Simulated assay, not measured.
Amino acid sequence: MSDDTSAEIRDTRKDWVVEHREMYLSSGGAEGHIMDVTAVGGRSFATHCLVKYVGRKSGKVFITPLCYADIGGEVVICASKGGADHHPAWYLNIREAKTVDFQIATQAFRATWREPEGEERDRIWAFMVACHPFYADYQKSTDRLIPLVMLKAVEPRPVFTPDEATGTRQF
């Protein structure tokens, strides 16, 4: 995928992502967990989480909504960036951290994270594509192997609030 195509996707989805994040945060998770994403090739009952992380360069706190699935007691998220040829900033930031916070609906957790490899990655990738079919199209549009991140909750924490985010997501 070219940088121009990536920019086009980013511009198309920017408003929706910002509105989704604000709805999720302002409702304390009561809204935004389940969303209809059929317009982008997804399901009408797609699950979304919020991921909170610290910018590796800025030191600012970011909160990003992402599709997720639960497999084997872990939450899996996909660093697809719509099939762009470079990784999303949230993924690069998480790679620099030992823990990450995530929220599903009205429950939030501190978590450890890992990236599955080999046969395990293949199995989890197939599961993610079954849950969110558009990931297959995203993978076809780039030469990079789209990373998967597994989150394992280690302790509960309060749900996220809008004022916790000191940075604005870059698209």
Rank of each mutant, 00 (worst) to 15 (best):
79 A>M: 07
94 I>T: 03
121 R>Y: 08
84 A>Y: 03
70 D>H: 02
102 F>D: 10
11 D>I: 01
107 Q>T: 13
146 I>V: 06
125 W>N: 04
25 L>V: 10
112 T>K: 09
27 S>I: 11
113 W>H: 15
104 I>A: 09
107 Q>W: 06
92 L>S: 07
6 S>G: 12
169 R>F: 04
119 E>S: 10
103 Q>N: 02
42 G>Q: 15
119 E>W: 01
110 R>T: 12
64 T>Q: 14
2 S>W: 11
27 S>Y: 11
28 G>C: 14
34 I>E: 11
155 E>Y: 07
78 C>D: 10
128 M>H: 00
155 E>T: 10
161 T>I: 09
21 R>K: 15
9 I>W: 15
128 M>P: 00
65 P>F: 10
54 V>I: 07
156 P>V: 07
54 V>K: 11
7 A>R: 13
4 D>F: 09
145 L>H: 06
100 V>D: 10
139 Q>R: 02
110 R>I: 08
73 G>N: 09
32 G>R: 05
129 V>F: 07
86 H>D: 06
56 R>S: 09
103 Q>D: 04
2 S>M: 14
159 V>F: 12
137 D>A: 13
39 A>Q: 13
142 T>D: 06
119 E>M: 03
165 A>P: 00
27 S>C: 13
55 G>D: 08
13 R>E: 14
37 V>C: 14
15 D>G: 11
144 R>A: 05
73 G>Y: 08
8 E>G: 03
39 A>C: 04
29 G>R: 08
73 G>P: 09
51 V>T: 00
92 L>C: 03
60 K>T: 00
14 K>N: 11
122 D>L: 07
147 P>Y: 05
12 T>L: 14
53 Y>A: 08
9 I>G: 00
160 F>Q: 09
57 K>Q: 07
97 A>S: 13
45 F>P: 00
65 P>K: 01
166 T>V: 04
85 D>H: 11
129 V>Y: 06
29 G>Q: 13
154 V>Y: 06
44 S>W: 01
87 H>L: 11
40 V>H: 07
161 T>K: 12
110 R>M: 10
162 P>S: 05
1 M>I: 03
33 H>L: 13
23 M>R: 15
79 A>I: 02
55 G>N: 06
102 F>C: 11
93 N>V: 02
107 Q>V: 09
44 S>E: 15
67 C>R: 01
106 T>F: 09
134 F>L: 13
36 D>F: 14
1 M>W: 06
100 V>P: 00
55 G>W: 04
31 E>S: 08
